[in-house]
Design a binder for these strands. Structure first.
Lengths: 155, 155
DNA sequence: TGCGAATAGGTGTCACAACACGTATATTCC
DNA sequence: GGAATATACGTGTTGTGACACCTATTCGCA
């Protein structure tokens, strides 16, 4: 079904190129999947970006990370990581302390509550992924990941 | 290279599941590709979402589309299509006229300038897609599109 | 040692998106 | 035919992302 997206967007004309069709499919799929995740996270009071930060900080362990390290590990470009962390700090999910070794650095860490929240979210997030992508066979998931990784190489 | 994304995001632990890895790959790839497109469009003064609307309106032809039809054809969910169209109207790229048949409807159409802009953008956008995805073989692009279409079925 | 460049972080301002609510017109059902 | 509901659109408010610019601290090198 090569024209499924065209039907979905109610477009009449064929895509200009195979590359454009692929781009639109990537964008559309990401929008659909991240919307679903966003809706799932809403009752917990965090956005998908915020959840992503919490997961990054959990992965960093007790040493925490400075602002730019968090920013560089985000899935999406985020030029204003300061206020993103501000909001998480205001919500009591992270703390920030200025480093004594290099006073330019401000290390961000999960609070107990932040850690508890991200741990609590593991199961429902996994269930959401299972719900959205569980119908794909392991080989399909692997192929998809590989092709996406390849697609990212040029830009 | 199954762990390329993990290296890219500097994560230590393996992904929790194949589904999660695929989700992250979709999100990351969409972010990278749409960022590139956004940067390409910036000199022309339109965002990727605005460009998307212009393309939708061109596809609709001289009859134009009402607000909700535009909204439903967008790649990403857009609850506030009114002000998106407001901005395009303020930029002189679209016009809106209230329908006489059904006075609830407001039909949006491209202006001459809007049409000229979207036509002018065809070539550089195609070049950008070629630049970002040209290194994939036709069969790879097709497989990728098909798997993404399949992935979208559940949610 | 001292001066300029680079790095880390923050802020002011604006544009844009999200949500809830309000208004006008059309349709449906009694 | 008239009230209730649905549809299409707009608006007020709040929160979030984008960009440019600023300060403080450290580093590099003469």
């Amino acid at each position: 079904m090569p024209n499924d997206l065209r039907a979905e967007l109610q477009q009449r004309k064929a895509f200009a190129s195979q590359q454009q069709e692929t781009y639109l499919n990537v964008a559309r799929t990401a929008a659909v999947l991240s919307d679903a995740l966003e809706q799932m996270l809403k009752p917990y009071g965090v956005s998908a970006t915020q959840y992503n930060v919490l997961r990054i900080l959990r992965g960093a362990g007790p040493d925490g990370l400075c602002r730019n390290e968090v920013r560089d590990r985000l899935l999406t470009r985020m030029p204003d990581a300061t206020r993103l962390l501000d909001r998480l700090e205001a919500a009591g999910l992270v703390t920030r302390v200025r480093s004594t070794a290099d006073r330019r650095l401000v290390t961000t860490r999960l609070t107990t509550r932040g850690r508890a929240l991200v741990d609590e979210l593991d199961s429902p997030v996994a269930a959401e992924h299972e719900r959205c992508l569980g119908h794909l066979a392991p080989g399909q998931l692997r192929t998809l990941s590989e092709l996406l990784t390849l697609a990212r190489q040029a830009a």
